[in-house]
Amino acid sequence: MIKAIKNYFVQPGWGLQLLSDIIKILLMLAFIFPFYWMLVTAFKGYTESMAVPPTLFPKVWTLEGYRSTFNSGLNILNYAKNTVLITTAVIALQLVIMVPAAYAFAKREFPLKGLWFGIVLVAFMIPLQLTYIPVYLRMQDLNLVNTLWPQILPMGADAFGIFMLRQSFKQIPDEIIESAKLDSAGEIQIMTRIMLPMCKSAMVTIAMFSFIGTWNAYFWPLVMTRNESVRPLTMAVEKLRDVEMGIRWNSLMAANTLLVVPILIVFIFASKKIIEGFAYRGMK
């Protein structure tokens, strides 16, 4: 450790490097600061959160913000429950639907394969903005608007996920499948005992993308729901702001931590994988 520090100052031009590094660290702190500010505000009391000038560190730590949120007249727990249910359901649904499809596109031959894959490609390019109106109307017709289904079903097939899984399946050498066939393995066995374990990494990445996307979703729940009881946490936080008579920022930030902290926790554990996944997206 000390050696590393000594080596740092031995390099020629270390002065400028040090300056650059200090600025970099400051910038990093600045980037993280909004999160810090959110957390810190969440634990301040109402009066302190409104203090002028604002305090960088709470003089008094309190859970008042959280209590306020839960006592605001909104059933926060229900919103949170919705978010969790929807997210879990979407991940499960996606894995069940997308994994076999990706495998088939990757490794199997069948008539009109190109056509069907073309459909996936086309679907990939169409944004949510173009589909929500008719989907909502359909949901209305089917009387599903007061359920969680409109937020789950349309998310079942994600074209990008299919691409990624297909890529991952393609990398498995054909010989392994052939050798399994020679060992009299059935289709399902091949898929579950050979392909899936080899693609764990890709599937985890897809699951994480789904998690992040669904957990953070706002627009889609907004247009798909009319009833507060089926709305997720993202909408609850907005409503909190409208419900409060003077904006209680500490309470609002407290509610926000419920949205942000789980994501950050997942990120801390899987940062490398998540970053790799997003980088892959850029390579498409």
Binding site: V96, I97, A101, I119, A123, I126, G156, A157, A159
Partner: peptide
């Protein structure tokens, strides 16, 4: 399933 979902909810 994937194709059905994509056609039903996107296309």
């Amino acid at each position: 399933p994937a194709i059905v979902f994509l056609i039903a909810f996107v296309i």
